[in-house]
Design a protein around this nucleic acid. Structure first.
Length: 140
DNA sequence: GCCAACGTTGGC
DNA sequence: GCCAACGTTGGC
């Protein structure tokens, strides 16, 4: 099992939208970046990820699970672009803000801190446990 | 709203 | 294959 981070502008697609899709989940479509796409290709069903709100909010707000592996992105005919499907698992009891993450020395290597523009990112197991702890979520 | 950082595109 | 120009993203 691997861990990831999915970033979205809440005005476009937010946690509430994701929750509204229930267990059926939704495509994580619209990614037009090779690095992000390549990470999605590496994902397996059952992998977990943080759902992060960018822009004004800047916080991890929940946990999602990969429910379908990479497949063509239905929002484009360009066959270069693929996406996975994810579903909401549970909200963060306490949202973990970017400031919180930056203030935590053990999280200073997170991709979120080092390459803030990448919209789909890998998260290490240690980072997963630490951020889950800060969010008041059981990492298991 | 601004701007720095980054990725992509296209001319050479 | 290089690099300048351009567009986009996201933190501030």
């Amino acid at each position: 099992m691997r861990y990831w981070l999915f970033k979205s502008e809440p005005s476009t697609w937010g946690w509430d939208d994701q929750v509204a899709k229930g267990d059926a989940g939704e495509e994580w479509d619209g990614v037009r970046n090779y690095q992000a796409r390549n990470f999605m290709r590496e994902m397996s069903v059952g992998d977990r990820g943080f759902f992060y709100h960018s822009q004004k909010e800047r916080a991890v707000v929940g946990i999602v699970e990969v429910i379908a592996e990479a497949h063509p992105d239905s929002t484009t005919d360009d066959e270069r672009w693929e996406c996975v499907d994810i579903k909401a698992v549970q909200p963060a009891r306490v949202p973990v803000s970017l400031d919180d993450i930056k203030a935590e020395p053990s999280l200073s290597d997170m991709v979120l801190v080092k390459n803030s523009r990448l919209s789909v990112q890998p998260v290490t197991e240690e980072e997963w446990r630490i951020v889950c702890g800060m969010a008041g979520i059981d990492p298991a």
